[in-house]
């Protein structure tokens, strides 16, 4: 009943020897469970390839916008025709965007979102008073968000350090708990700490994920106006895509 995982791993990494390949084919033919597992993993292969391509395509799209923008600013004499082409492209993109709203919002989110780095507290592995906070940041930096979230919650209760809400929101967003993330980010906006402005950027991404594009738009404008340089170019590019 146990499935030979090594054989399967070697199959997907194309490292089966001739003998192992015969064994693989034989098991695939005779063992129903083995066949079902391999078929399932092959489907994951197709799906992850499609997702990977879509992500890369959106990355290329952002390069293209940048190159086009640069060329536009370099050639003022050709401004008018360029505006016409850009307008046409925007309309086409807008229509495509409306038609594929689900796919594109997901793609946009995946392209632009990466959990914020820890810019607040150095991680010191010690038995000091801040152990809870330390552990929260250690888990967060290791991308163990499930572990980090309750630690941030507790640390915030104890210290009332509002920046912790920013990281909790990021962790929730990374776990696809978008609505919870929005609630925590909104709570963070009641405070005026150093990370307050950046929360608008992450709120915009969360709203994109929820397909609430008007709100995303608004958050991006607030963020760009705040004068923060972190992800500013990305915010401007994203705003252009939404408008």
């Amino acid at each position: 009943m146990t499935i030979n995982e090594t054989l399967i791993e070697k199959y997907f990494s194309k490292q089966l020897s001739e003998v192992e390949l015969v064994e693989f084919k034989n098991q695939y033919k005779t063992d129903q469970d083995f066949k079902a597992e391999v078929d399932f993993l092959k489907n994951i292969q197709y799906v992850s390839e499609a997702e990977d391509d879509a992500q890369f395509k959106s990355q290329l799209g952002s390069y293209e916008s940048e190159f086009k923008d640069n060329q536009k600013s370099k050639s003022p004499r050709r401004l008018k025709p360029m505006i016409a082409v850009a307008a046409l492209l925007l309309i086409t993109l807008g229509i495509t965007f409306l038609l594929n709203k689900d796919l594109n919002t997901e793609q946009l989110f995946n392209t632009y979102f990466e959990p914020s780095k820890n810019v607040s507290a150095p991680i010191v592995r010690s038995e000091s008073n801040d152990e809870l906070l330390n552990n929260a940041f250690i888990a967060y930096s290791a991308a163990e968000y499930n572990e980090a979230i309750p630690l941030f919650e507790n640390a915030f209760e104890n210290t009332k350090n509002s920046e912790l809400l920013f990281y909790e929101g990021n962790a929730l967003l990374a776990l696809d708990k978008t609505e919870d993330a929005i609630a925590v980010f909104k709570k963070h906006l009641f405070y005026t700490d150093a990370l307050r402005h950046r929360t608008h950027w992450y709120l915009a991404l969360a709203y994109i994920k929820m397909e609430e594009l008007d709100k995303a738009n608004q958050e991006l404008k607030i963020y760009i106006d705040s004068g923060e340089s972190f992800k500013k170019k990305e915010a401007q590019l994203l705003l252009k895509k939404l408008e």
């Binding site: 292969q45 992850s48 390839e49």
Partner: peptide, 12 residues
Amino acid sequence: MLTLSFYRGLTN
């Protein structure tokens, strides 16, 4: 993780 394992074909 699943993309690396099954599409990219990387070993553990």
